[in-house]
Design a binder for these strands. Structure first.
Lengths: 329, 329
DNA sequence: ATGAAAGCGCTAACAA
DNA sequence: TTGTTAGCGCTTTCAT
């Protein structure tokens, strides 16, 4: 069933049927009624491929994820989904596994008008590529950003988050604080580390660089980091982690070493994923407003969708520090 | 940049360029070389919308999820992704929130040739609809199935899983066993419950129906269920849960009641999501072979992709029972 | 080995 | 208010 057949059945032209479908006012009420009844009878729905080819629009957006295996993304996507739906856009999700070829493959859907825009999380593309891309296509970065790229984005203030966390520890008389993070040189990492360092500077606390341990974000990396850190003579009384998985690994290792987490050593994670609440001890964490991040990401892309030359906005949403047993609450 | 412009630049016809793109043998080696160099120079990639419109194929499949907020799906999707990629298919993921209108909206992409097939998890559509759909379009159900529908699917033997778990408890001398589950009347639920009942029958253990508590799958539901179960005089020494979230809630409530989980009361969950490993006590669970489920789901749809009349296959993959502290290991 | 032309389903400019 | 027609980018049949 296609528009041509419907037109034949109705006894009207294809154009008239198209007008009815698209709620064009230039069609007689009686005609509209007749056409609609036929459309209804045959359960006809216009072919989006044909329409896309013609209009160069798809009413779909793409969400490009580095991995599906992170519970952190789910609520954000819900925020995107809901907001997109309100504006008549469908949401498609694709996973890159941080392989550049896959990123390009999915981003290619933009050029094909197969999606009208893309909300991207962590990706491997360089600043120049992102800048050029976002000039031509609605493109928004969420939670993570490419340093130096001219593009709309929404993030939390990662630096301030870790600055606040670290400052709190310092103000509570912790003199030796460790920082466990990843080693991807991505924006969030760099900001968090610099927040850690800045807090030391501002509070005149000498920073021991060997207490900054960076590798990956697996929980085994958190455990390894603790082993390393506690093999020296001067051991920390607080550990700031750049993710919950790292905090989890760190805590499990501390438990194995029979160090009392929340009393002898404080530990805090990042992202407030559900594990933090259920673990024993429950894990303190920096919480990002996930649903709102998703909502804002869509709002940003919506502006670009309507006007690709809209100015790039850089939105910062507030985070919250949530204290649980691992920081003694 | 489109095929027409490329043709002009090359000095060949659109048809020839198309042949080069599609690796058609009927084109001179020298011509192919020339055309390819131009394609390369202008970084031309064919427009999929145009091609789809013409070929009625998209080389994409859709994965339809009830929700993003379940860590269980991520590995399965990875399995689908990887296998699809091997066969030149891209994977798109959409979320229905179990709203029928959204399910239909995304399923509509099939009719539009916007995706060539769909792998669906739990959905709300009835058997008849699914049967008809799968006659016309490559459609596969994964992990969950619509009872009575004629459609390819891949699942584990949910009944046997719970049968085995329950039997083990009985053989270890447990006389009073509770079962906490959901109340959606979906296949997996019904099978699991019947496995629970069958194990009692086969071992001549009288079943107390009031020990079967069904509501939702939130962890608070697990806690509520335990409250209810332990408000009677005859309390169980083992609890079989239809999900990890239920097990988690059940255990946390038992802990609150100062009942020693893993000694006084055994608890086992379902799906072996990451929480099970990290919780204290660590939670025993039935593990589904997630990556393989995804891989098999794609293999099934691939058969339908190549021949829509391929017979419907019902694949059952093996599960594993993983014992941890919550069952005394 | 190559090209011309039709047509996939739709929208929109122009005509009537 | 309605219809005619061109064309979005591509593949494929039929000619040559």
């Amino acid at each position: 069933m296609n528009i041509k057949k419907i037109a034949e059945i109705c006894g009207y032209s294809v154009a008239t049927v198209s007008r009815v479908i698209n709620d064009d006012s230039r069609v007689a009420a009686s005609t509209r009624k007749k056409v609609l009844s036929v459309i209804d009878k045959y359960n006809f729905v216009p072919n989006i491929t044909g329409r896309s080819l013609r209009t160069q629009k798809s009413n779909r957006i793409l969400v490009l994820l580095p991995t599906m295996a992170n519970q952190f993304y789910t609520t954000i996507i819900q925020g995107i989904e809901d907001t997109a739906d309100e504006h008549g856009y469908a949401t498609l999700v694709a996973v890159s596994n941080l392989e550049e070829s896959k990123e390009l493959k999915y981003l290619h859907m933009l050029r094909m008008n197969h999606v009208d825009g893309c909300i991207s999380f962590f990706n491997t593309l360089d600043a120049d590529y992102i800048t050029q891309l976002s000039k031509k296509y609605p493109f928004v970065q969420c939670c993570e950003l490419t340093i130096g790229a001219e593009v709309s984005h929404v993030v939390i203030d990662n630096e301030k988050a870790i600055y606040d966390v670290t400052s709190e520890f310092i103000e509570n008389n912790h003199k030796t604080i460790a920082f466990i993070s990843g080693n991807y040189y991505k924006y969030s990492e760099i900001s968090r580390e610099s927040g850690f360092i800045k807090a030391h500077l501002d509070h005149n606390l000498k920073l021991d660089k060997s207490l900054i341990v960076k590798s990956f974000y697996r929980y085994t990396d958190g455990a390894e980091a603790v082993k390393k850190i506690f093999s020296r003579d001067k051991t920390p009384t607080a550990i700031v982690c750049a993710s919950d998985s790292l905090a989890l690994g760190a805590i499990s290792e501390l438990k194995r070493m029979e160090i009392n987490v929340g009393e002898e050593v404080m530990v805090i994670g990042f992202d407030d994923t559900s594990i933090t609440e259920f673990y024993k001890p429950s894990i303190s964490s920096v919480s990002q407003p996930r649903y709102e991040l998703g909502k804002e990401a869509f709002d940003l892309i919506f502006q670009k969708l309507n006007n690709i030359d809209a100015t790039n906005k850089k939105v910062i949403l507030p985070h919250r520090i949530i204290h649980r047993e691992s920081t003694g609450y």
